[in-house]
């Protein structure tokens, strides 16, 4: 790649290139790309895990069944705890979000693979879906009263318009921060590993140092992959609570 040119030329962004899977040519909206491949692998892995894990239906679960049940109860408890009983019907939606993000994050850590969640387009779609869901559900459930979220009734009257403006801005920044957080974290982790790998390519025997650093960062990235999926899901729960739950100011 970059070090073919000789010297320390690191191109940490090269790994995020999207190119058609078969041959060359222009990228149309339906062209299967390397990202499509890894999205497909994510889907297959989730499907296999979920179908094999849920197939035995034993009262005393085996290993795979334990994984799926752990996943299920983990998200279920999170939804129940954060959004309350009202939000429980969004549980399948959050389950899809979490399983997709965590699987694609972890698959992206396989060397040579591709992480769809490192792309802003992917995370932006996920975050916009959440944003639209929250807004539509909020207006559907509470009608115009949903706007009361921006009118902080516990604040002094003089401050309320200013607070309303701030709340409104922060409401619309939500999908941005929601998507950038996930995409940025994954992208940053991969890019840092690539930078260290570039160092390792030119340092000769001393490259043991960057390789050790890669190992350490890899461990951190495993943690980040799970934590970011968790954070994305729990923030979705927090946003949904605004829409379905009672006011909590």
């Amino acid at each position: 790649m970059a070090d073919e040119a000789g010297g320390l030329v690191i191109d940490p962004m090269h790994q995020f290139q999207i190119h058609p899977l078969f041959g060359e040519g222009p990228l149309t909206w339906y062209t299967p790309t390397n990202q499509t491949l890894w999205l497909g692998i994510t889907v297959v892995v989730i499907s296999i895990l979920m179908l094999i894990g849920s197939a035995p239906r034993k009262v005393i679960p085996g290993r795979t069944q334990s994984i799926t049940e752990l996943l299920y109860t983990f998200i279920h408890d999170m939804v129940e705890e954060v959004t309350g009983h009202e939000g429980a019907k969004f549980f399948p939606y959050l389950m899809v979000l979490f399983t997709f993000i965590v699987t694609s994050n972890l698959l992206g850590l396989i060397p040579g693979s591709f992480a769809p969640t490192s792309h802003i387009a992917v995370t932006a779609v996920l975050a916009l879906m959440v944003f639209l869901t929250v807004t539509l559900v909020g207006f559907y459930k509470k009608g115009i009263g949903f706007l009361g979220m921006f009118w902080v009734s516990s604040a002094p009257l003089v401050l309320r318009p200013i607070l309303a403006l701030i709340e409104l801005i922060s409401y619309f920044v939500r999908p941005l921060s929601h998507s950038i957080r996930l995409g940025g974290n994954i992208m940053a982790g991969h890019a840092v590993m690539k930078v260290f790998a570039g160092f390792a390519g030119v340092m000769g025997l001393a490259s043991i140092v960057p390789i050790a650093a890669i190992a350490a960062i890899y461990g951190l990235e495993l943690l980040v992959a799970v934590v970011q999926a968790y954070v994305f899901t729990i923030l979705t729960c927090v946003y949904l609570r605004d829409a379905v739950g009672e006011a909590h100011h």
Binding site: M78, E81, V82, S177, I180, R181, G184, N185, A188, V227, Y230, V231, I234, L235, V238
Partner: peptide, 15 residues
């Protein structure tokens, strides 16, 4: 949960 939400909000600005 609150811990992670707080960390996420703080981290978003850094991101």
């Amino acid at each position: 949960a609150n811990l992670f939400v707080g960390i996420a909000f703080a981290e978003a600005l850094g991101i």
